[in-house]
């Protein structure tokens, strides 16, 4: 596509991977899990293992989009007293560790409470690249969109198998970085079988936008990552990495390496990008 695409920082990293003939790997871990320092070590292990984009979860009391694995991990982080400022300091430590773009995935209220402008400025100040906002739709996002634009932060909104073409258009037009396509109708968590809803969603999304499309929800191993990388620009992995984080950074790194190998299979598929 020749239109001007709002690649931002995460989108540039994804396109760089795509240019190498492979899918990009986006890895998620919540801040503060299994402990504050352990969380930082886990995220660094994802970087060492080869992720292209980092997603740090901001633990929240009412995570309606999350399944049991991420719920439990974020409850542990909150019970240990993790604060929003600790998420920011986690971002700072991870962002200074490498050039991998660092996004934060957060439910909306903690940002609204912090102050949207103030958060955007502080977050950009510690090296954050942007936010993924699972319960904020662009229709309600004017304040965030303005603050993100002012601070040159990525805005990753979600599209879903239930989204109409009209909503996909509206949503992707508001994104910078990439658009997060949820592969299933459901919450986060590893799934055995591949989603048959994701390929048509990616196809519908690519029909209206040139912005990179990342597919998440349910991806847990190298084979699944390879299958998704065949049709999507980026593969997003969360719960499986959270499970690995319980066993420490070495386990996170091992799984990340497997996933990174997965997105490097099937080089022929990248030609279609």
């Amino acid at each position: 596509m020749s239109e001007l695409v709002a690649l931002g920082k995460a989108g540039a990293a994804i396109r760089k991977a795509n240019a190498d003939g492979r899918g990009a790997l986006v890895g998620y871990l919540p801040a503060g899990y299994p402990s504050y320092d352990g969380g930082i070590d886990g995220i660094k292990a994802m970087i060492d293992g080869g992720v292209d984009v980092i997603e740090i979860g901001l633990p929240y009391s009412d995570p309606v989009m999350d399944g049991p694995t991420i719920q439990r991990a974020t409850e542990i982080a909150r019970a240990a007293g993790l604060r929003t400022r600790d998420v920011l300091s986690t971002v700072e430590k991870v962002a200074s560790y490498s050039d991998v773009p660092v996004l934060v995935m957060t439910y909306w209220n903690p940002i609204e409470r912090y102050g949207v402008d103030r958060f955007a400025a502080d977050f950009a100040g510690v090296g954050g690249a942007g936010l993924i906002t699972p319960d904020l739709i662009p229709d309600e996002g004017a304040e965030w969109i303005a603050a993100a634009d002012k601070n040159e932060l990525d805005k990753v909104f979600l599209v879903s198998p239930s989204s109409t073409d009209e909503r996909i258009k509206l949503t992707t037009a508001a994104c910078r970085g990439f658009v997060y396509a949820t592969a299933v109708m459901g919450v986060t968590g590893a799934r055995e079988t591949p989603s048959d809803l994701a390929p048509p969603l990616v196809e519908r999304t690519k029909a209206v936008t040139g912005i990179p499309v990342g597919v998440g929800l349910g991806v847990s191993n190298g084979d699944q990552a390879a299958a998704i990388a065949a049709y999507a620009d980026a593969v997003i992995v969360g719960s499986a990495l959270v499970k690995a984080a319980a066993d420490g950074p070495a386990a996170v790194r091992a799984l990340t390496e497997e996933l990174a190998e997965g997105v490097r299979r099937e080089p022929s598929a990248a030609a279609g990008r």
Partner: peptide, 12 residues
């Protein structure tokens, strides 16, 4: 008021 909901539920 408004709608602060996952996109998956917006069409429904």
């Amino acid at each position: 008021g408004g709608r602060f909901m996952p996109e998956a539920l917006i069409a429904p």
